[in-house]
Deep mutational scan, measured.
Amino acid sequence: SSCPGKSSWPHLVGVGGSVAKAIIERQNPNVKAVILEEGTPVTKDFRCNRVRIWVNKRGLVVSPPRIG
């Protein structure tokens, strides 16, 4: 992607959502990480300053967080 800084975090799958949020925002200060339960409807727009963290009912990351 053409967004500045780190853009994906595949190693965070299985980690707690709040831990993942802290790591992502520390590694790329340009983004705001948002924790969402899988299945939550979201907009389809692409934004360089957003990372969606998809978690299951136990709050664990279920897919690699990435910019968008």
Rank of each mutant, 00 (worst) to 15 (best):
K32I: 10
P64H: 00
I35T: 03
L36P: 00
R58G: 11
V62A: 07
P29T: 09
E25H: 03
G17N: 00
T43P: 13
P65E: 00
R58N: 12
V13Y: 00
N28W: 05
K6S: 14
K6I: 15
G17A: 06
G17P: 02
P4F: 10
R52P: 11
V19A: 11
R66T: 13
R47Q: 15
C48G: 11
I67D: 06
G16D: 14
V62C: 10
R50N: 15
V51Y: 03
V62L: 07
W54I: 08
P41R: 12
N49C: 05
V62N: 07
V31T: 05
E38W: 08
A22F: 09
D45M: 06
V19W: 13
I24Y: 00
N56H: 00
S18N: 10
A22H: 10
A22D: 11
C3D: 15
I67F: 06
P65I: 00
S63Q: 12
G59W: 02
P4W: 10
E37V: 11
R50H: 12
E37S: 08
P29H: 07
S18C: 12
P41H: 09
I23R: 03
P4C: 15
A33Q: 00
V31C: 08
S1L: 07
S1W: 05
R52N: 11
V34M: 12
L60E: 08
N30T: 12
N30G: 15
G39Y: 02
I53M: 03
R66E: 13
K32P: 02
F46G: 09
K32R: 10
A22C: 08
K6Q: 15
K32T: 12
W9A: 03
V31D: 00
D45N: 10
S1F: 13
R52V: 14
H11K: 10
I24R: 02
R47S: 14
P41A: 11
I35A: 05
G14Y: 03
A22R: 13
K21D: 00
Q27G: 08
V61M: 00
W54P: 04
P10G: 06
S8Y: 12
P4L: 09
P41T: 11
G59K: 01
V19S: 09
G59L: 00
T43G: 11
A22I: 10
T40P: 01
R58Q: 13
D45V: 05
E37C: 11
S18P: 13
V55I: 09
W54M: 10
V61G: 03
G59Q: 08
P65W: 01
S7R: 13
Q27P: 02
K57T: 08
P29E: 08
R50P: 04
R26Q: 07
G39V: 01
V42A: 12
N28Q: 04
T40R: 06
C48M: 12
R26W: 05
E37I: 10
V15I: 13
V34Y: 07
L36W: 03
L36Q: 07
N49H: 06
I67A: 12
V51H: 02
L60N: 06
H11R: 10
E37D: 08
R26G: 13
N56L: 01
S18Q: 15
V15S: 07
K57A: 08
G14Q: 01
G59P: 00
P10S: 06
P41K: 13
P64S: 06
P10A: 10
S63F: 07
R66I: 12
E25R: 03
S18T: 15
G68V: 09
L36I: 13
P65K: 01
G5W: 12
H11Q: 15
V13C: 06
V42I: 05
P29F: 01
E25Y: 03
Q27D: 15
V15Y: 11
V13F: 03
K6G: 14
I24E: 03
V61T: 05
V15M: 15
E38K: 09
I24Q: 00
I24T: 04
H11I: 04
S1H: 05
V61Y: 01
A33M: 00
T40C: 07
L36E: 03
G59E: 06
S8D: 14
A20W: 00
S18F: 11
V51G: 01
Q27A: 09
Q27E: 15
S7K: 12
L12H: 01
V42C: 08
I23P: 00
L60D: 10
H11Y: 10
A20C: 04
N49M: 02
E25G: 01
S63P: 01
L36R: 05
G16E: 15
V61K: 02
P64W: 00
W9H: 00
I53K: 01
A20H: 00
G59D: 01
F46T: 10
V13E: 01
L12N: 01
S7F: 11
V34C: 08
E38I: 14
D45E: 14
T43L: 08
G39D: 06
E25L: 03
P29V: 06
I24A: 03
G16A: 15
K21T: 04
V31I: 14
S18L: 12
V13I: 09
L36M: 09
N49Y: 04
S2R: 11
A22T: 13
P41Y: 06
P41I: 11
C3M: 13
K57Q: 11
K6V: 15
R52F: 12
P41C: 07
L36S: 05
G59N: 03
R52H: 10
G39A: 04
E38T: 08
D45G: 08
W54Q: 05
E25Q: 05
S8W: 10
P4Y: 07
L36A: 05
I67G: 05
I53Y: 03
G68W: 06
W9D: 01
S7P: 07
A20R: 02
V42P: 05
L36N: 04
I23L: 11
W9I: 02
G16F: 10
N49S: 10
E37G: 04
N56Q: 01
S7V: 14
I24W: 01
C3E: 06
S7C: 13
R66K: 12
C3R: 12
P65G: 05
S7A: 14
Q27H: 09
W9R: 02
S63H: 11
R26L: 07
V51M: 04
V13R: 01
P64V: 11
G14H: 08
E25P: 02
P10I: 05
K6N: 15
R66F: 08
I67M: 11
V62K: 07
V51S: 02
V42N: 06
V15E: 07
L36H: 06
I53R: 00
R52Y: 08
V31L: 14
S8Q: 15
G17Y: 02
G39M: 01
V61D: 01
N28G: 01
G68K: 02
R47H: 15
R47T: 14
G68Q: 05
P10E: 10
P65F: 03
T40H: 09
V13T: 04
I24N: 00
A22M: 13
R26E: 14
E38A: 08
F46N: 10
I53A: 02
K21Y: 02
E37M: 11
K44V: 07
G5H: 08
L12V: 06
N30R: 11
E38L: 08
V51I: 05
V31A: 05
P41G: 07
T43K: 12
W9S: 02
T40N: 04
G39K: 06
S1E: 15
V13D: 01
V34Q: 07
F46A: 09
R47G: 15
K57D: 14
P41M: 10
